[in-house]
Every structure is written in C-alpha cells, then in structure tokens.
C-alpha cells in the first residue's frame, strides 16, 4: 500500500519548477484520459483481446521519464500504453494499434501489448510476465558495450518480481555493472493476487541486496518523489556503478484487464485510494495552492488533452485495417547482402 500522507499542504519539491510540474500534470492527464478512452473503445468492440489500463499509476512513468535523458531506453510488459505516451510516442499511433489498424505503431500486428519505437527508444510491449527484465538488461548491456552513458529503465510489476529470470538478471546485471534501473511497479495486485498472498518478503526491492544491488521504496503516487528517486538511480547507473532497484508503490484503479471484475478487493479500498492518494489530484492541488496555475489554466489543459485523445480515437477508427498481404510480411528481416 502506498505510504500515507496528508492530502493537504505538501510543498512543491525543490527539484521541480512550475513549468515542469505543469508538464507532469499534462502528461499524467493525457495518460488518464487516453486510458479512459481506450476503455470506452473496448466497450464498443473497437479494441479486442486483452487491454490493460494504467489508470492510477500515472505518476510512476511520468516521474521516471522526467529523470531520463535522450538516448535512454525503456522496456515494459503489457500494461504499456502509458510508457509509450510518456516517452513521446504519438497517441494516434498508439490508439490505432489498440484498434488493430494500419496506422498503428506495429501496423496492427502487435495490439495493445506489443508496440515499439526505435525513434523513442521504446523496446516494448512484452506479453510474458518478466521476460522484459533480461531484455532490458540486454539493452543496457548493448549500451555499455558501445561505451555510451545511456541508461535503460526496465519496468515490471509486483507479480513479475517473483519470476526466476528476474533474479538471474539481477545477478548478471550487478556482475557486469549494467546501467539498468529496475522499476518494480508495485500496484499491490498481480492480476487478482495481493502481494501478501504471493510472498512473505516484507519488501520486493530488498531482494536486490542478495545480489549487491542497492535500491529503495518510492511513493509512486507522488510524481516528484518518483522523479527524485529516478534521478538518484540514474546517477548511480551513469556513474558506472551498475544497476539500481526502485520499488514504486502505486495502485491501479481499474481491473487487471478489461474483463477483470476485481472481486479480490473492495470498492471502498479503491475509492479510498482515489480520494486520498490520486497522483493527478495531488499535483493539481499543489499547482492551485502554490498559485502556479489558475483553475482556468488547468481547464485549458484539460480541454487540450481531451482534443488530443479524441483525435487519437478518430484516427484509430478511421485508419484502415492492415492490407491482407501484411499477414506474410515482417516475419524475417531482409537478408544482409553477403560479400563474395
């Protein structure tokens, strides 16, 4: 459970300017509105299969992206729409992938769980719980091999944190000093199983100690706290000191996927989180109380975001289905010509 705090009077952290805070507000709001729209489109049958929404967890990815520089990489599992939006991928392309259309990032062949962008250094979008963890360490391996100072953010959930390959990866990441930040997005539930029903470990980040990896718990409902922790982790990695673990305590308001009735927790529990700990409301309060923005300013942002999201939905509906000959493309990359 995210740590308690008073909802009032949290001062703006010194590591964030007014402009930055407004930007985080905008990005978190974009994620929330985008996900709400995706939920609607799913209900209308325009999005099929699995669709995992990020609503409630917005501060995690926005805070960490604020700590990243150009060239840094990110990889995550299938609750991935927010990571794409936060690293600057085009909402139209993301939404059109959700609807399985030609205009989607994977031209309709990946869907909600599988999108990639080399340009934005987003490496997916992976459907097998925890498989992205060694992949992310591999991306960091490549950067270290090439001798640059890029860092990779590997996102995984509290459920994935029990997979064996996570620990194989911890071991090698520390052994080889790989510049990777392991971000455990602890949203309290692995599908329907509460953390305490799947492990007796008091905390997940502390398991890194067995491999010599430092880490810490972070309040994932506070975007500034996430950014501060992210900066610390990134500095550790860029200094060549190897990996770092952040266990970011957060909460998802919606079910695991669209078909999850969420019977494993009470309506009151969710309601309490929304009322007391909502990450967007938190920033909104700071902006208003600190007179960094007026109600009208924020309304303006809301309106702007709404337009972006509506446009993405229209784009996603209008984009054609992939041409049938796409069935047989992209199975193999073109041959590299062989020298005689």
């Amino acid at each position: 459970m995210a740590t308690r705090r008073s909802t009032k009077k949290t001062p703006a952290k010194s590591n964030v300017s007014k402009e930055e805070l407004l930007e985080y507000y905008r990005e978190m709001l974009l994620i929330r509105r985008f996900e709400e729209k995706a939920g609607q489109l799913y209900g209308m049958g325009l999005i099929g299969g699995f669709c995992h929404l990020y609503i409630g967890q917005e501060a995690v990815v926005v805070g960490l992206e604020a700590a990243a520089k150009d060239g840094d990489k990110r990889v995550t599992s299938y609750r991935d729409h927010a990571h794409m939006l936060a690293c600057g991928m085009d909402p139209n392309g993301v939404m059109a992938e959700l609807t399985g259309r030609e205009g989607g990032y994977s031209r309709g062949k990946g869907g909600s769980m599988h999108m990639f962008s080399k340009e934005k250094h987003f490496y997916g979008g992976h459907g097998i719980v925890a498989a992205q963890v060694p992949l992310g360490a591999g991306l960091a391996f490549a950067d270290k091999y090439k001798g640059n100072d890029n860092v990779t953010f590997v996102y995984f959930g509290d459920g994935a944190a029990n997979q064996g390959q996570v620990y194989e990866t911890y071991n090698m990441a520390e052994l080889w000093d790989l510049p990777v930040v392991f971000v455990i997005e602890n949203n309290q539930y692995a599908m329907g199983t509460a953390v305490k029903r799947s492990t007796k470990s008091p905390s997940l980040w502390e398991r890194g100690a067995a491999y010599g990896i430092p880490g810490e718990e972070v309040d994932g409902m506070d975007v500034m706290a996430v950014k501060a922790a992210g900066e610390k982790a990134v500095a550790h990695c860029r200094a060549g000191k190897g990996p770092y673990i952040l266990e970011v305590m957060t909460y998802r308001y919606r079910g695991h996927s669209m078909s999850d009735p969420a019977k494993y927790r009470t309506r009151e529990e969710v309601q309490k989180m929304r009322e007391e700990r909502d990450a967007i409301e938190h920033v909104r309060e700071i902006l208003l109380q600190g007179k960094h923005a007026t109600e009208d300013d924020l309304k303006g942002i809301d309106k702007e975001i709404k337009a972006v999201v509506n446009e993405s939905a229209e784009f996603a509906k209008d984009s054609p289905l992939p041409a049938v000959d796409q069935l047989y493309t992209d199975i193999y990359a073109a041959e590299i010509p062989q020298e005689a």
Partner: peptide, 20 residues
C-alpha cells in the same frame, strides 16, 4: 556467464534489439 540460460538468453536477445 553464470549457469542461467533463461537469463543470459534474454540478455543476449535484448542486446540484439539494442544493436549488437
């Protein structure tokens, strides 16, 4: 590598996606 086929295969695949 340590004796961890699952892990190092994944790291190698990730490094291939990263350009190696």
């Amino acid at each position: 590598t340590p004796i961890t086929e699952h892990g190092f295969a994944g790291i190698a695949v990730g490094s291939a996606m990263g350009g190696l």
